[in-house]
Amino acid sequence: MNARHHLLGAGFEAARSLPGVGEHGHSFRVQLRTAALPDTLPALQNTLQQAVAPFHYGNISQHLADASDLSLARHLLAACGQPGSLHLASAPDRGVLLGEDGREYVYFDTRFEAAHQLPHVPPGHKCGRLHGHGFGVRIVADARHASLNDILLQAWPPLFAQLNHRYLNDIPGLDNPTSEVMAAWLYQQLQPRLAGLAWVEVRETHTAGSQFDGHTYRIWKEQHFESAVPFDAAGNYTGHSYLIRLMLQGSVDRVMGWVLDFGDVKDRFKPIYRQLDHNPLDKLSGIRAADAGSVAEWVHGELKPLVPELSRIDLMETPEQGVSLTFRGDMQWPLL
Results as ranks from 00 to 15, higher is better:
residue 5 H to N: 13
residue 5 H to C: 13
residue 12 F to L: 12
residue 17 S to N: 10
residue 20 G to L: 04
residue 22 G to V: 07
residue 24 H to P: 08
residue 26 H to I: 07
residue 31 Q to E: 15
residue 33 R to S: 13
residue 35 A to C: 00
residue 36 A to W: 09
residue 40 T to Y: 00
residue 43 A to S: 13
residue 44 L to V: 06
residue 56 H to S: 11
residue 57 Y to C: 11
residue 58 G to W: 00
residue 58 G to S: 15
residue 62 Q to V: 00
residue 62 Q to N: 14
residue 69 D to Y: 03
residue 70 L to Y: 02
residue 80 C to A: 07
residue 81 G to R: 03
residue 83 P to A: 07
residue 86 L to C: 02
residue 89 A to V: 00
residue 93 D to F: 02
residue 94 R to V: 06
residue 102 G to L: 11
residue 111 R to N: 14
residue 112 F to W: 03
residue 117 Q to A: 13
residue 118 L to K: 06
residue 121 V to K: 01
residue 123 P to S: 12
residue 146 A to Q: 05
residue 147 S to V: 07
residue 147 S to T: 15
residue 154 Q to T: 14
residue 166 R to I: 04
residue 174 L to F: 03
residue 183 A to V: 08
residue 187 Y to H: 14
residue 189 Q to P: 01
residue 192 P to K: 01
residue 192 P to F: 06
residue 193 R to E: 05
residue 194 L to Y: 02
residue 200 V to F: 08
residue 208 A to W: 05
residue 214 G to I: 11
residue 221 K to Q: 15
residue 228 A to L: 13
residue 232 D to M: 01
residue 238 T to Y: 08
residue 240 H to Q: 02
residue 244 I to K: 00
residue 252 V to I: 13
residue 254 R to P: 06
residue 266 K to S: 13
residue 271 P to W: 03
residue 275 Q to L: 15
residue 279 N to W: 06
residue 284 L to P: 10
residue 284 L to S: 04
residue 291 D to A: 04
residue 293 G to C: 12
residue 295 V to D: 03
residue 295 V to A: 01
residue 296 A to N: 12
residue 302 E to D: 04
residue 308 P to D: 11
residue 311 S to D: 13
residue 316 M to C: 00
residue 317 E to H: 14
residue 317 E to R: 10
residue 318 T to I: 04
residue 319 P to C: 11
residue 319 P to Q: 08
residue 330 D to H: 14
residue 330 D to P: 00
residue 335 L to N: 09
residue 336 L to C: 09
